[in-house]
Design a protein around this nucleic acid. Sequence first.
DNA 1: AATGAATGAGGATTCATTCAT
DNA 2: TATGAATGAATCCTCATTCAT
Lengths: 215, 215, 215, 215
Amino acid sequence: MDKISRRERKKLERREAIMRAAEELFSRHGYRETTMLEIAERAGTAKGTLYLHFKSKEELYLTICVKGVAGFGETLERARESADGLEEKIKAVYLAYIRHSLREPSVFRVLRDTFLENVRQNLSPDTVRQVSGIIRNWLENESQLVREGVESGLLRPTLDPYRFSLLAWRTATGLVELALLEDPMVVDSTQLNVLFEESIDLLLQGAKNHRSEEV
Amino acid sequence: MDKISRRERKKLERREAIMRAAEELFSRHGYRETTMLEIAERAGTAKGTLYLHFKSKEELYLTICVKGVAGFGETLERARESADGLEEKIKAVYLAYIRHSLREPSVFRVLRDTFLENVRQNLSPDTVRQVSGIIRNWLENESQLVREGVESGLLRPTLDPYRFSLLAWRTATGLVELALLEDPMVVDSTQLNVLFEESIDLLLQGAKNHRSEEV
Amino acid sequence: MDKISRRERKKLERREAIMRAAEELFSRHGYRETTMLEIAERAGTAKGTLYLHFKSKEELYLTICVKGVAGFGETLERARESADGLEEKIKAVYLAYIRHSLREPSVFRVLRDTFLENVRQNLSPDTVRQVSGIIRNWLENESQLVREGVESGLLRPTLDPYRFSLLAWRTATGLVELALLEDPMVVDSTQLNVLFEESIDLLLQGAKNHRSEEV
Amino acid sequence: MDKISRRERKKLERREAIMRAAEELFSRHGYRETTMLEIAERAGTAKGTLYLHFKSKEELYLTICVKGVAGFGETLERARESADGLEEKIKAVYLAYIRHSLREPSVFRVLRDTFLENVRQNLSPDTVRQVSGIIRNWLENESQLVREGVESGLLRPTLDPYRFSLLAWRTATGLVELALLEDPMVVDSTQLNVLFEESIDLLLQGAKNHRSEEV
DNA sequence: AATGAATGAGGATTCATTCAT
DNA sequence: TATGAATGAATCCTCATTCAT
């Protein structure tokens, strides 16, 4: 039994090595430009071994996506729980999304690519739907916070919670994309770091119920 | 001489037909997924003809990029000029960026791809620098408007103009990406259309000098 | 126009060279054991060229089948027409089938393989159906001769014409298979040649209406 | 000693399980189409185990052939012995060949494939010679019956006994091939069943000494 | 003896690019 | 100039066989 477990552990390690290699390469070169041979070489295995662990290139990709999405979900959840107060929670989740993306750029890129039209074409509709489903789920969780903000009077009553979440998500994504460029050219990293916090402050400030503040 | 000029016109028309076809296809399917045969067929020529006009697939791609960037520049410039008032100008440029992107999705996608790390790898550093240069130029033009907004007291004095432009640009890009998905899955198009205007309103509202308003 | 036609002729020649090469190799090694590279090399072209003329390995195979079946059909038809008298016609068609098979062993083998279960599995049901359809057609033509033989009193009234055709076909096929072995081992070629005529004589003799002869 | 024999029995059982699995699969899908993994799974063992019992895929295939040939031999022998009268014996052997083939389609197919040119190429000349030898032996046994038929005046004196046996064998094989098709397309199974008996009747009728009958 | 993970040669197919006409 | 046939490197995937456990 010990022996079996040792063998299984080894297999699991291989699998993880493959996933790490694939994640890195998919993220750097995109789905189509990454070849199974490259992945195998980077993972230190033979081509055929990949197919022992994943039925196809697409399944390997999907597995990475799903794992990545799950990781994101946990991070956001933790951020929401650990912050106090509605405004703080909203900011925490927003910043957690950015920080997690920067910490795991491969995951961010793979998920983003899954979202972009031209990468979608190589994936089965099912894969795309699965990833989209999880993203929508985040957005709805986030909306709930915003809704509470509106109900509590913090944010102005005309604000649509889901649209605000959507906006925050797209803004964060746009900033991360910029931050992940090897040579951003149009901005230096200090400015970007400031912008992460500033951006959500701006959005929240704009969404506040100024009537009530003025009183 | 007339004949020569007729011949040249014909050649130019061919070249443009090829570029239109390529733009459409690169934008829909991405660089790798688009084949030279498809481009040729859509342009109504033979495969070999493409190589009379462009040295390689990559050169064709780059030519499209450069042309697209120029078109964007003109549109933004026109938007700035035709709007009245600082706030209106800022909004106009922001919305023009979005509208132009939606009107010319191919150009938007090709430029966005050029910006993303994994596509950059296929491009010469020179091309990347060229495109980046033009983008920085837009941002600086836009910054100038924001700076005037700050100086006039419309926007709060602590606002960094360049950072604000950057933020608006990334937000707009993030929204356009979503809008261009064939099946956005997480949002319907009505919501998105509202969001285009709402987003810049929110950003501007958040950037305003509320002290002065309250008075 | 002359030039175009020259080019087209060349293309047609290539196509035929490929078909000849494929026919030979499929017949010698079977469908699965034959590789596209081998076919290309034997045809004196590059691998890619095959795909200019045939969409896939299967389509190439099918094309050979269909052409082969047609050739058979014409041969049998000619045999039927040129012989005099019912009995002679039946014998002529039977022998023509054998002779054509021996003259074009590749075609015979390819068609036989299409018929055998394990080769069918690699082919689309459509391919199989198409070939089967033509074979059934032969059998029905042949049946018609036998039916006339029964009606004229030459063959015994209890004889089922279609079954007799089937039997003759299977017998002929069985003999050809033996004749095509490089080293038959169980029979020498003189014996086989005698057997070709003898076999149909035996079958016809057995099918005759002996009552009427006895009168 | 008991333990050792138990172990040996187990080993033998494994070996037989593997052979049964392989026979079934080779027969259904052909040599190339059958994978060692499939055989292992069907036999309830691991892939590696196959190589403890058989040096290679080919050796496994050959072992099945040889065993199959032996089984055929016994069946035919039994049929000859249990029938009474020359004509009955000839028919019995003929029908036994067909029935055994239908009862053990795997064996039939494997042997037939061994006989066909394209499969022979994978086999050592020795194996082919061995199988051929056994087949010739059948044919000679069968010839003996026919010879007696000629000598007794049942069959016409001009009939060559070996050729007649050859013919009967090829006819039977041709019919079995048709009968084993999953979807015969050109004939239904009722007709085929009638044809089994009808065919040997026709052949024998054709071979009879009609002069003597007429008297 | 049994296992099953790992290997890597081999096969079908695609497509950017070349070049003879 | 325009064509499109030809090329062959590159890609995904399969599977017989080996070997450490």
